[in-house]
């Protein structure tokens, strides 16, 4: 075969493969939007579920997800940022820091359902928090910890070394240097990572299955020790556990969940882009 023809066929093949990978994304988004859009209404988003979830809205699930994600972030961000500060600013390349990095890589690879088991064993049973928003938030928080740490590390590492040296040479202490000369400039990167973590936490189902999620609750949760419905679990329930749910409700729920996650991801992308444009060093 002619070398040129070979080249053309090969490149065509690679292009075809790429299309096969990317096209389903558009198909998924298209189908969900097309079939779910008609369900979207004020009542669907802000109403309580009625008549066996076949009417009314998904508000308790949406609110539950917002609660869970907020709790997860409150737990994971301080811990993750401090952990990244330890790795970047304090630790030297020794056994402990290598062990920490290995632990982070492995945490990122632990199956989400195993996090669910962990949350059940530790928070629900051992610490006695019960099946509650608290247990679910902590479980989700631990799950997104690697995301937050990795993003924060990258953000801290991108701050030029000279800032630290100048600050220390002016008599600032190590913590003052981190607080005043490093963290402010790492903040946009940390924020981007946090939003990505939010998106991840909002869409996860397996970790909340046994730690918080309620099949159906006719009222809104009142404390962190209450159970709650959650959007991804609600989608699972109405699409597999309860027969005969209206099709537009199922697609509508999927659409709301998808929108929530995609908006968060777009926010992160825009933030990252604007920050790169503004950066001056």
């Amino acid at each position: 075969m002619n070398v040129r023809t070979q080249q053309r066929i090969a490149v065509g093949f690679l292009f075809f493969c790429t299309v096969l990978v990317v096209l389903p994304v558009l198909v998924i988004l298209g189908i969900i939007t097309y079939k779910g859009f008609s369900a979207l209404s004020f009542e669907f988003i802000f109403g309580m579920p009625k008549s066996g979830m076949n009417a009314g809205g998904i508000f308790p699930a949406l609110l539950g997800t917002i609660y869970l994600v907020t709790g997860a972030i409150l737990f994971a961000v301080p811990l993750g940022v401090l952990s990244a500060i330890y790795l970047v600013e304090y630790s030297r390349d020794n056994a402990i820091s290598r062990l920490i990095k290995l632990a982070i890589v492995n945490l990122a690879g632990v199956p989400s359902v195993v996090y669910g088991l962990f949350g059940l064993g530790v928070f629900v049973v051992f610490l006695g928090f019960g099946v509650s928003i608290l247990s679910g938030s902590l479980t989700l928080g631990i799950m997104i910890l690697p995301v937050i740490i990795t993003a924060s590390r990258e953000a801290l590492e991108s701050v030029p070394q000279s800032f630290r040296i100048v600050s220390l040479s002016l008599g600032a202490s190590r913590w003052q240097t981190i607080r005043h000369a490093v963290l402010p400039h790492a903040l946009p990167g940390i924020l981007t990572g946090t939003i990505l973590g939010l998106g991840r936490a909002a869409g996860e189902t397996a970790p909340i299955l046994f730690t918080v999620a309620a099949f159906y609750l006719p009222r809104l949760p009142e404390s962190v020790f209450d159970q709650t419905m959650a959007l991804p679990y609600h989608l699972y329930v109405i699409s597999t556990q309860v027969p005969g749910i209206r099709e537009d409700f199922r697609f509508g729920t999927a659409l709301v969940l998808l929108l929530l996650v995609l908006i968060l991801n777009f926010a992160a992308i825009i933030l990252r882009y604007r920050f790169r444009k503004k950066k001056r060093w």
């Binding site: 990317v22 389903p24 994304v25 998924i28 869409g203 189902t205 998808l258 996650v261 995609l262 991801n265």
Partner: peptide, 19 residues
């Protein structure tokens, strides 16, 4: 596009795969 795919929650992909 690839990043978008990574962002879609697994329960949504499962739902679409199912239907």
């Amino acid at each position: 596009g690839i990043e978008l795919l990574a962002a879609i929650p697994s329960v949504v992909i499962g739902f679409i795969g199912m239907v």
